[in-house]
């Protein structure tokens, strides 16, 4: 029996909660970029580098959903097209306490434009408990000004329920006829 693999991409600026969000729904303990393996912390030991944060949802013995988080640093943006190859959708996480979250939207939606047009994006705004402005109406209008239509939700990246809602919105946006 062949293994069926699908991929969902999480992106957003550093600190927006990508790794945490993956951890909230992953069946496994996520592997993070820049992670040091258990006994690698001493100097002169090689560092483990993985291309993306990684989590996994196992649907059955032969069906898996791989959750990939892009490295948060913007200097990796020139690689993002190849990172998303084969992905079914994009979760963009934004940190509402950042200086200019709209600039983040512009940056990430531009970087993933082709992928978003082919697939689907869902936006989760984190840390709204710490900073209420901008609010969701402003996010919606800003996305509209970029000619983008996407669900925008307030989320707590630690919350299984919230991240599950993002995924539900992604799947239903891709195919509203899906039966849950």
């Amino acid at each position: 029996m062949s293994m069926i693999n699908r991929k969902i991409i999480f992106t957003g600026p550093v600190g927006a909660g990508k790794t945490t969000a993956i951890a909230a729904i992953s069946d496994i303990k996520p592997i993070a970029t820049d992670e040091y393996a258990s006994d690698m912390t001493k100097s002169r030991k090689p560092q483990t580098t993985v291309a993306m944060d990684y989590g996994l949802i196992r649907l059955s013995d032969n069906e898996r959903v791989h959750l990939y988080g892009t490295p948060g640093q913007e200097r990796f943006d020139f690689m993002w097209d190849i990172l998303t190859k084969g992905g079914i959708g994009l979760i963009l996480l934004l940190d509402n306490t950042r200086k200019d979250p709209f600039q983040d939207i512009r940056f990430y939606t531009n970087a993933f434009r082709d992928f978003i047009e082919k697939q689907q994006m869902v936006v989760g705004v984190t840390r709204m408990d710490l900073q209420r402005r901008p609010g969701l109406p402003e996010y919606r209008q800003y996305l509209e000004s970029l000619s983008l239509q996407a669900p925008v939700f307030e989320v707590d990246a630690r919350s299984h329920k919230d991240i599950t809602m993002l995924l539900q919105a992604l799947l239903f946006s891709l195919d509203p006829g899906v039966i849950n």
């Binding site: 729904i25 949802i57 649907l59 995924l167 799947l171 891709l174 195919d175 006829g177 899906v178 039966i179």
Partner: peptide, 21 residues
């Protein structure tokens, strides 16, 4: 109109997500 090719897979993933962790 959405492609329905992934409907079975999406449905299984949704059931899994909504069925708890």
């Amino acid at each position: 109109m959405p492609k329905q090719e992934n409907r079975g897979f999406f449905s299984r993933l949704l059931k899994r997500l909504l069925g708890g962790g």
